[in-house]
Each structure stands twice: as C-alpha cells, then as structure tokens.
C-alpha cells in the first residue's frame, strides 16, 4: 500500500495560503499555479493600521486578511469548500484523522510558533499559518507545509497544540477541503472579475489607511515618527515594516512579484497584451518596494544615516507606480 503522504506531490510555494489552495486544487485534478490562486482570489492589498497593535507594533499588511485567498478563490472560480472549526481539541483531532483515513488531504490553520519543524528564529505567535496535512502514521502526521522545500513529520500532540492555541486570530482547529472541486475554470471571466475587484481594493478603499492612500500614509507616518519617537523605536518600526514585506513569505516585495507573475500568466493564457504590460509595470513596482526595504534596513542597522524623507519619497514612488498599473488595468 502506498500512503497518501508518499503519493502527494509536495511543491514549495512563496506564501502559505495560496500554496495550500494551489496544491489542494491541483491534487483534485484542477491544475492551478500559486500565482493564479493568489491573483484570482483578488488578495493583493495594502493596509497600515497604527491603531491595531500586534506584539507592540502596528498592523501592516500587503495582502487581504487571512482566509480571503481561500474564500476569494472558491467564490471566483465557483467550487464548494467545506470548512470546520471545533470547540474541543480531541474532537478536531478525531475529525482530521477521519478525513485523512478517507485519503483526503486537509488544509489547516495553525500557529507558526508551535510547529516543531519551524526554525527557532522563525517561530512567532502568528496564528494564521496555513498548511496541508496529507497522511498519518503511528501517531504522527505527514504535513506538506508549502513554504518549506520538503514534507515534514509532525507529532500528534504538537499539531494539536498548534491548531488549538489561543490568542488573536485563534485557529480553533480550522480545517478545510474542497467538496466539489471545479471541473474547469472560465478564465476570461474569472481573471476580469478578479482584476477589477483587486483594483477597487487598491484604488477605491473607503479609508485613507488602505490601498494606495495607505502606502502614502505610511510614508508620511515614518516622517512623523522620526519627530515623535526615540531613534531606537524608529529603527525597530522600520525593521517591522521590512519583515511584514519580505520575511513572512510574500514571494518578494510584499506579494507584488507574485501578482505580477499572475498578470503575466493570465496575459499569456488569454493572449492579452494589456495584462502583459500591467505585469511589467507591477514588476517595476516590486523593484521599488525592494529598494525601499534595502534603504530602510540599512538605516535601521545604522549603516546609512537615517533619512525618513528619502523613505517617504520611495514609498510615494511605489504608490505612483502601482497607480499606473491599475490605471492601465481599468481598460480591461
């Protein structure tokens, strides 16, 4: 007998949630790349909410909130997902085991801090990490965590702890799997809808802290922080921005390269030059974000004198460049 774990095709991805969705659908016979999963879910975003603090630092996000890739994708390409949450850990483990015994790979939400295969430096209390469980063997699970190169073995009690930890965005044992996988995807319709929806998120957000306005707001706020904060706190804040942009598995430049890849893939599939042009522009946006991160990092390490006006200018350039992408896509 071959275990489902051995036959499951593990693929490394840039981001956890889009990687899980891409692997799940591909497993069910509907081949979908990671950038496609990300792009079709319309999850590219920017949000800077200084009022909401996580671990003492303001919330900065380059994507829509956790769960939106899963929900957005199933809505856009029309397939049913079953999601379940549990009150008791034992109940959640029983259900997971039952699904695995049916040969069903299961997507789960878990805390990155309690997953034993994470290197210590990457263990933070982030409760919305997504991964796949693909089989079980002698009280251990085979997990296919898309941000790693290979599959891992995880003890039952460790996984249970990671699935049922408390705190912000507590996973409550969330597990999900497609009930009716899509037979085919109507790409012209799905791509158009997804791009237009994403354009609204980035350009027509109702609050000045979201979308393109949010990027400019971050630039202004960094300058304000220099006047208000101690140099040490400002350096820690810059480090926090860089980590949210690069460290948490974004495919580079806060998902901008991932989205550019989606635009390219969609443009080639639909023979649409407009999408290809938008992809080039989005790549340039990503390069600007990387430049911002490089300068911010050097300043926070004191290898370069602190120059918040420069960071502000770089962020404004990012916003300008991104605006040109969406202006182009308006004619889609």
């Amino acid at each position: 007998m071959t275990l489902p774990a051995q036959s499951f095709g593990h693929r490394q991805s840039a981001h956890c949630e889009s990687g899980v969705m891409s692997a799940l659908l591909t497993h069910h016979g509907c081949s979908l790349s990671e950038p496609m999963a990300f792009g079709l879910s319309a999850s590219l975003a920017f949000a800077y909410l200084p009022v909401i603090k996580l671990a003492g630092q303001p919330l900065i996000s380059y994507r829509m909130p956790p769960g939106s890739i899963r929900r957005g994708l199933s809505k856009r390409i029309g397939f049913r997902m079953k999601t379940e949450r549990f009150r008791h850990a034992a109940e959640g483990t029983r259900r997971l085991d039952a699904l695995l015994d049916q040969g069903q790979p299961v997507g789960i939400q878990a805390s990155a801090f309690w997953l034993p295969y994470f290197p210590p430096e990457m263990r933070f209390h982030f409760n919305a990490h997504n991964l796949l469980v693909v089989g079980r063997e002698n009280g251990n699970y085979w997990v296919s965590d898309p941000v790693f190169e290979t599959m891992h073995m995880c003890a039952q009690k460790d996984l249970e702890k990671a699935r049922f930890t408390g705190g912000a965005l507590a996973p409550q044992g969330l597990l999900y799997y497609p009930v009716v996988p899509p037979l085919s995807i109507d790409y012209p319709k799905a791509v158009r809808e997804a791009v237009i929806r994403n354009m609204r998120i980035m350009t027509a957000a109702p609050l000045p802290v979201l979308g393109l306005h949010g990027i400019r707001y971050l630039g202004r706020n960094i300058m304000a922080r220099e006047r208000r904060d101690t140099p040490h706190r400002l350096r820690l804040f810059l480090a926090h921005v860089i980590r949210m942009q690069e460290e948490i598995g974004t495919g580079g430049a806060g998902f901008r390269f991932l989205y550019a890849c989606f635009l390219q893939e969609a443009g080639e599939l639909l023979h649409n030059d407009l999408l290809l042009d938008a992809s080039d522009r989005m790549t340039q946006t990503g390069d600007l974000w990387r430049e911002f991160a490089l300068h911010a990092s050097k300043m926070s390490k004191e290898r370069e004198p602190m120059d918040t006006a420069l960071l502000n200018r770089l962020l404004r350039a990012c916003a300008e460049q991104e605006q040109s992408v969406w202006r182009r896509l308006k004619d889609l």
Partner: peptide
Amino acid sequence: WEAESDATMLALDD
C-alpha cells in the same frame, strides 16, 4: 536576503 535577516535580528535582539 541580508536586508531581511538584519531586520529579523534587530527585532529578536530587542
């Protein structure tokens, strides 16, 4: 990427 790991190390040092 050095820029990224520097940021992580700074946060961890704090």
